Simulated assay, not measured.
Amino acid sequence: MKIDTGKSPKALGYRFPAEFEPHAATWLSWPHKEASWPGKIDSIFPAYAKFIQLLSEGEEVHINVANPSMEAFARKHIEAAGATMDQVCFHYFPTNDAWCRDHGPAFLVNDQAEQRKALVKWNYNAWGGKYPPFDLDNEIPYHIARYRNIPTFSPGIIMEGGSIEVNGKGTLMTTEACLLNPNRNPHLSKPEIEVFLKEYYGVDHILWLKDGIVGDDTDGHIDDLTRFVNEDTVVTVVEEDKADENYEVLKENVELLEQMTLESGKSLNIVELPMPKAVIFEDMRLPASYANFYIANTSVIVPTFRDSNDDKALSILQSCFPDRKVVGVDSWDLIWGLGSFHCLSQQEPA
């Protein structure tokens, strides 16, 4: 169902809620692409199933699979992890890959509208055409809209969920490295991109960081860098080792954050989160970051990397989320796919 009023979601009163607001569900696309975890895909399923188990404690989990055999395979792993299976629902919506944050829809809400929920179907090109094919992934928002019977807005430009972060009150944060990359929307200027962000996410105020972390093949997604934990507080990753490749980039991000203000005019509260030591596999630095956590209804699920900073990062995040349990889940194998729990998931607001 499309809304064809000639008006944007913002003009119709819709907004994109913050991840820490209540969820109706989390959407996932079951991992099956061997090339995303070459030589390691079998080792990721225990951590992925643990993620689903934790989600199922507090909300529905909807999983896109290709067919009954993929469902049976997934079900076996999820049951072994002890998930609440009556909270888990499978859909035969085939995908090319598992990164539902980026190919899934952006769910919008408007408590005053007849249709209180809608979604944005952005176009998806696998981070600038890096990993074809992506035709099945690009259809996922349409499948979900039909299943939920909710209206769809289609702006017609490339946008990925991992590239933006909102506080739910009118501020959106992103990075120049990703959204201004010519492999996304080369025909759009920065001011033109801001118009799309405001009109389709229902925000008023855009904050721009610059570069992402080393090894991030998305060209600098914000969800490896800086995350809102409430409407006026961000956690942001920092690197203490001056010899590390990430040191200068992350230091510059903190300096930019210190100058920024929210839609209300208030300065940001900034909480610093350490980085793990470099995770290197087959001579390749992987984008390991504690910022790639996912905020669920009852828990905050954090990737850990068998590192001395794991416990420190969990403790800092627990102080940011006093009403949820913060749980670390080993992401050592998962990060070989160049993403973790936030990249793999998409929240559907209540």
Rank of each mutant, 00 (worst) to 15 (best):
T175E: 03
D216Q: 03
M173A: 12
Q346K: 15
Q318W: 03
L28V: 13
V166M: 02
T236R: 04
A278P: 00
K169M: 09
V279Q: 07
Y142N: 14
M284S: 13
W208G: 08
V203R: 04
K169R: 09
K169H: 09
D307S: 13
S299W: 04
H103M: 08
V214L: 10
P276M: 03
K76G: 02
G339A: 11
T95H: 06
H221Y: 08
K242H: 12
T84I: 12
D323Q: 11
A66C: 10
L197H: 01
M159R: 05
R306C: 15
V88F: 02
P276K: 01
R285K: 15
E252V: 08
M284V: 14
K277Y: 00
R148S: 11
A113C: 11
V302H: 08
G212I: 07
V302Y: 08
V166E: 00
N183M: 06
K10C: 00
K169T: 12
G13K: 02
E192N: 04
A177V: 05
H23V: 10
V326I: 06
H91G: 03
N230T: 09
T171Q: 03
F341A: 06
N96H: 08
H187V: 10
P274V: 09
Q53I: 01
D42N: 12
E21F: 12
S8E: 05
W208Y: 15
T152K: 01
S267T: 14
A177W: 01
R227S: 05
N67C: 12
M275G: 00
D204R: 14
L256M: 09
L54A: 07
D330S: 11
P133G: 06
N138S: 12
V327Y: 06
D241A: 12
S154Y: 10
V329A: 07
L179K: 01
R184F: 06
Q87S: 08
D111G: 09
Y142L: 13
D102N: 03
